[in-house]
């Protein structure tokens, strides 16, 4: 296993920042999963692909747009019709799926080096994200485990709600550093901790 490098490294400053005197509103961290894989089903093959996701990760995905789930090791959610993002704390997930998803079922794309995963957690997470994305982040509209695809000024972002106050953001690796800076600026007002 090679040493994993982060695009955030030059600007990643652990500690408290911004207006934190009255408490820290959000915590920002890099998740750095070992694998990030995109799976896409051919039309009519979604159920078979979802079964493969279930057999590899043990996660049960409900039917319907954006449905998802996570465990200590894996996270998975739909982000478009018949398309899913799956992450694994360990490396090698794309190889595993390549052996489980038949060519007639769909495609497996290894994005482990192409995406950066950032977690924003804490009581003001919805508030901070609402500054960046024109999406309803409230719990009734965006349930735990489910995911969406959206954009902030051409930075395409896939977001999974990982808890009532926690969201995992997947951005293109080449945009990750500027996105992280922007997220820090947006979090300044509520006080944030980087860890």
């Amino acid at each position: 296993m090679g040493e994993q490098l982060s695009p955030l490294e030059p600007i990643f400053r652990p500690g408290s920042h911004g207006n934190f005197v009255d408490g820290v509103g959000v915590t920002l961290s890099e998740i750095a999963p070992g694998s990030i894989v995109q799976l896409a089903a051919w039309p009519g093959e979604e159920k078979k692909l979802m079964a493969a996701i279930g057999s590899v990760t043990g996660l049960k995905l409900a039917d319907g747009a954006g449905a998802g789930a996570s465990s200590d090791r894996y996270a998975a959610f739909g982000f478009a019709p018949g398309k899913f993002l799956v992450s694994d704390a360990s490396e090698g997930l794309a190889t595993t799926f390549a052996g489980k998803v038949a060519a007639a079922t769909g495609t497996v794309t290894d994005l482990s080096h192409g995406r950066t995963a950032i977690r924003i957690a804490g009581p003001r997470s919805e508030w901070v994200l609402a500054k960046l994305f024109a999406v309803d982040f409230s719990l009734p509209a965006f349930s735990v485990g489910s995911g969406i695809s959206t954009t902030h000024h051409d930075v395409f972002t896939q977001i999974q709600r990982s808890g009532p106050d926690s969201f995992d953001l997947y951005v293109f690796r080449s945009f990750a550093r500027s996105f992280w800076k922007m997220l820090c600026h947006a979090s300044d007002e509520v006080g944030y901790e980087v860890r």
């Binding site: 319907g64 747009a65 954006g66 449905a67 309803d136 009734p140 509209a141 349930s143």
Partner: peptide, 19 residues
């Protein structure tokens, strides 16, 4: 609707709350 489909959509977003 999805451009590739005719009639009503087969996918639909989970309940979006009030709006």
């Amino acid at each position: 609707r999805f451009a590739r489909e005719h009639g009503t959509p087969t996918h639909s977003r989970r309940n979006h709350g009030a709006k």
